[in-house]
Nucleic acid binder design. Structure first.
Lengths: 201, 201
DNA sequence: CTAGTTCTGTTCTGGCCGGTACAGAACCCT
DNA sequence: AGGGTTCTGTACCGGCCAGAACAGAACTAG
């Protein structure tokens, strides 16, 4: 009884909701939350406003869906990196992933979660808050992974998981800013390598 | 024979142009270029639109003036740091300055040049470009200083000034993002210290 | 076929955006 | 005093914003 995601009755949707979300994600990625107007979004999605509202609710909910997709797609490196066997390998994979993701040729430069809403007017506040949470979550998962590494003896006893996680996140954010400024993948990977020079041995 | 900055004749300006610019800078700092509306700006400046247009030209020129003031005021650490005697001291002073500036209690969190316009709509493009230039300039001056350090034997022969400068800039940007996410000065200084662990000896 | 449901395109809204026109106020110089 | 100049306040502009109303189209279930 009930709980169908998609209704079996009524006029069928005339567009691919997944593809439309992908396009919307790219627009948010390039222009940020407030910088992306409904006209920009629906234009890229190939639908009109009414269809967008029917399918996603409103602009903010569309953004949340797009962010979710971002986390499962382009930013999945942040999760996959945690599976590396050592803390060093995790950090390296994380930074390598951030370099690749922020300099893809088929997507905007930079990181959606950084560009999305660092500063904004009042309308952008909800987006800003959800992005702050998103970034903090990513840091917390990294910290947890490093804590495990200490427990396993992979990191020295006196290493601070929180400190290392914050450091790696910070470098990742910095890489995103540099990518948005137009730096290429080679320069950024060099930065990532430099950042690992001080890693505990 | 002309060239007067301020006219000697006509009704005198009814507000302190310097103080108004200071207020405008803070609004741009907190909300970014596009996020700061003329209503926000003139409200904080204590004047109305007409006066702002008469004094500064338009929103973009006001932003440029505010950015200039930012460089000479809150962000002057970037220049002062270059005067430190060693490359390590320069890097440390630069990061320390970025931590302090992005976590001042009397100013918005974060860095104006990062928050101002990372991503934006079409209207924000000029601001975005001027900020990219600003950030690149800061990196170039750091690189030049490190190059001198190599010449002086202060840094090892095989050290890459460009690489080190980009790394320090990247960490500075990352710190700015973290500050905007609400991190406090102690956490950020710890990050800065961590970032220096890999510095060439 | 009809009724019910859902999607689509057009049209409209009130509000805010950056920017301007204009009249009057406040000053200097003669 | 009077003219020239510059600043200030009000009122206004077209344009875009996010969002809603509504009619009709396209489907399923009976």
């Amino acid at each position: 009884m009930g709980g169908f995601r998609k209704a079996a009755v009524g006029r069928p949707r005339g567009f691919d909701i997944d593809e439309a979300l992908e396009r919307a994600m790219q627009v948010f990625w390039a222009r940020g939350y407030e910088g992306a107007s409904l006209t920009d979004l629906t234009g890229a999605m190939g639908i009109n406003k009414t269809s967008m509202y029917a399918a996603f609710g409103n602009k903010e909910q569309l953004f949340r869906k797009a962010l979710q997709r971002y986390g499962q797609g382009p930013a999945s490196y942040a999760t996959h990196a945690l599976a590396e066997p050592t803390a060093r390998a995790v950090a390296e994979a994380f930074l390598r992933g951030s370099v690749r993701t922020t300099t893809r040729s088929d997507a905007p430069s930079g990181c959606l979660t950084v560009q999305g809403a660092l500063a904004s007017g009042d309308d952008g506040r909800p987006a800003r808050e959800v992005l702050v949470d998103w970034r903090n979550d990513a840091g917390a998962r990294l910290e947890e992974r490093f804590r495990r590494a200490v427990d396993e003896g992979d990191l020295p006893r006196d290493a601070s998981p929180a400190r290392l996680a914050r450091y790696i996140m910070t470098v990742g954010f910095g890489i995103a800013v540099q990518a948005a400024s137009g730096r290429g993948p080679d320069e950024l990977q060099e930065i990532a390598d430099t950042a690992m020079l001080g890693w505990p041995r």
